[in-house]
Computed example of a mutant assay.
Amino acid sequence: MIAIKAKKIDRRTLFTRQAIKDAFITLVKQDSYAHITVTALCREAEITRSTFYLHYDSITAVLNEVLDEALQLPTQHEPSELDTQLGFDYLKENESLIPACQRIGDSDKYQELLMDPDLSDYIVGHIMAHERERVIPALQQKTGLSREDTETLFLYMIHGSFAVNRAHKFVKDPKWSHDVQLLNRFTNAGYKTFKD
């Protein structure tokens, strides 16, 4: 069997991609996502269109990468790590274990993006696509429900959690901490009723 090495990305590529993402975030703070163009993005990043297309095939590709960073979407986790019984203080220090809609950065870097009304459904869909195959089996194990019923719970949890975080403008403060604990208690109580 031949081992395939992962291609190392050089510093110039990393620098350019970061410049594009930073320019994207700057533009979102100035106007909504719907008004961002490749031309404006290139101007803000001080690159050419051909350079942009060397790194991304569309503005949506930039959006997806920025969303992954903003929501701290993990690359892999064991289903057991989704257990919110770990305790809120532990989860607060290890945000990648909190459900995706509850993982938000402490800085205001991504707030305008996450608050953009044109993107709410897209962001929720992005989270669901990324988390579905990690979360659904864990929920099935916790509840004993069918895949179809678990999908319904998953849909409810993601939309509800996103709405609560949006109401807090994605700012971690004592009220946010209280509400996350409340949601986790509610969710855990729900798990127990299905298991009984």
Rank of each mutant, 00 (worst) to 15 (best):
R147W: 11
F162N: 02
Q102E: 10
P79A: 01
P74F: 07
R103W: 08
H130G: 04
G144I: 06
P99G: 05
L145S: 04
M115W: 00
S120H: 12
L145N: 05
R147A: 09
G105I: 00
N165R: 09
E151W: 04
D116S: 08
G87H: 03
G160H: 05
H130S: 09
T152G: 01
L145I: 03
D89T: 10
D108M: 06
I98K: 10
V164G: 02
L97D: 03
E112I: 04
G105M: 08
L119F: 10
G105R: 14
H77N: 00
E95Q: 13
I127P: 06
Q141D: 06
E131T: 10
H159R: 15
A100H: 05
Q140N: 00
T150M: 06
I127M: 13
Y122D: 09
Y122R: 12
M157E: 10
H159G: 07
F154T: 04
Q141L: 05
H130D: 01
Q141A: 14
Q140R: 15
G160A: 02
Q140D: 01
Y122M: 04
E133C: 00
A163R: 13
H77R: 15
L153I: 11
I158T: 13
R147K: 15
Q85R: 15
S96A: 01
A100G: 11
G125T: 12
D108T: 10
P79Y: 06
Q102S: 11
D116Y: 09
D106L: 06
L155N: 14
G125Q: 11
P74A: 08
I136C: 06
D118V: 13
